[in-house]
Amino acid sequence: MLKLQNISVQFGAFCLKNINLNIEKGDYYVLLGKSGTGKTVLLEIIAGLTRPAEGKVFLKNEDITKKKIQHRKIGIVFQDFALFPHLTVRENVAYSLKKKKLTRTEKENMVLEYAKLTNVSHILDRSPQNLSGGEQQRVALARMLITKPDCLLLDEPLSSLDVQLRGDLRNLLRQINKSGVTILHVTHDYEEAIALSNKVAVLHQGKIAQFGNTKDVFEKPANEFVANFTGVKNFYEVAFTSETVAIIGDTTQIIVSNRRKLKHGKIIIRGEEILIATKKTQTSAANHFEGDILQIIPYLSNYEIIVDVGIRLTVVITENSLLKFDFQIGQKVWLSFKSTAVKIIDI
């Protein structure tokens, strides 16, 4: 669908070197990287707003590296939304329809359709300057989606929104992706990758440090940077049966603090926050699981112990603790963690 081949570009202090990416139709691809690593420039290269020094961009097997921006069928939504301040929301959304051979009613119907999809129908006659961040983001998405792009590029779409709005917008982005739009989303926030993507690439020092299925990249970081940056291995899709119980799969129950009363979501439990012991101990932790040690592997300056408790949980301990308790593969152990150690991500 969208393929980047050996893209290189030098921009002031940073450069991108030999970037190769292959995004399949229907993918929700997240490109993770710290600020200033060239993520936005890469999007601009794909959209045709910046020329790469080397390399090629292919869309549906067609080399579009030199194709004009307006003919690429790739939509980009910038971090600051870039709404036209002198036009109303309706005029912003309808901007791309002007030269299309449609009747006035057809154009208006399209505007209403996409306004409904993005939930901006009630603000169509307002000026973008009077909208909240979330509303502006939705208008920017409506304006782009109405062009029916083959691929949608999102530059840090959730970074300026508060937690509540992020949840709403994630739902919208997932809905857009499910409708068939391929999405490439750049962010510095690994939670967004967990919440949304099926594939992820990590950008570091101008190169792709690792790419692949989200679960693989998070579970098996290729190097220390990726491990530090992704930083979390225990993440699961769950169904919430109450404000305090999340179910993973059909059987494993986790005690959580689900104050937002979500029905579905993802949870993250950091390996550093799980206690491991040879016997069940009485603590304030609400979650206790017995399981078998599957693997013990060095992790940065510590060790990871992977335990099968019905699900696989990864525990991070120091070398001193490993030596002190002499944990062995196959040994039965008890894991415990507090409900507050479980971070809930709205999906």
Binding site: E44, A47, G48, L49, I69, Q70, H71, I74, G75, I76, F78, D80, A82, F84, P85, H86, Y95, S96, K98, K99, R143, M144, T147
Partner: peptide, 27 residues
């Protein structure tokens, strides 16, 4: 006028001349 607005207009399929008259000039 932020260059990003002009880039966005181009990305929305407008020709450079339309970008000038519909975005740059009014702003």
């Amino acid at each position: 006028v932020p260059v990003k607005l002009e880039k966005t207009a181009l990305n929305l399929g407008a020709s450079p001349i339309r970008v000038f008259f519909s975005v740059s000039l009014p702003l």
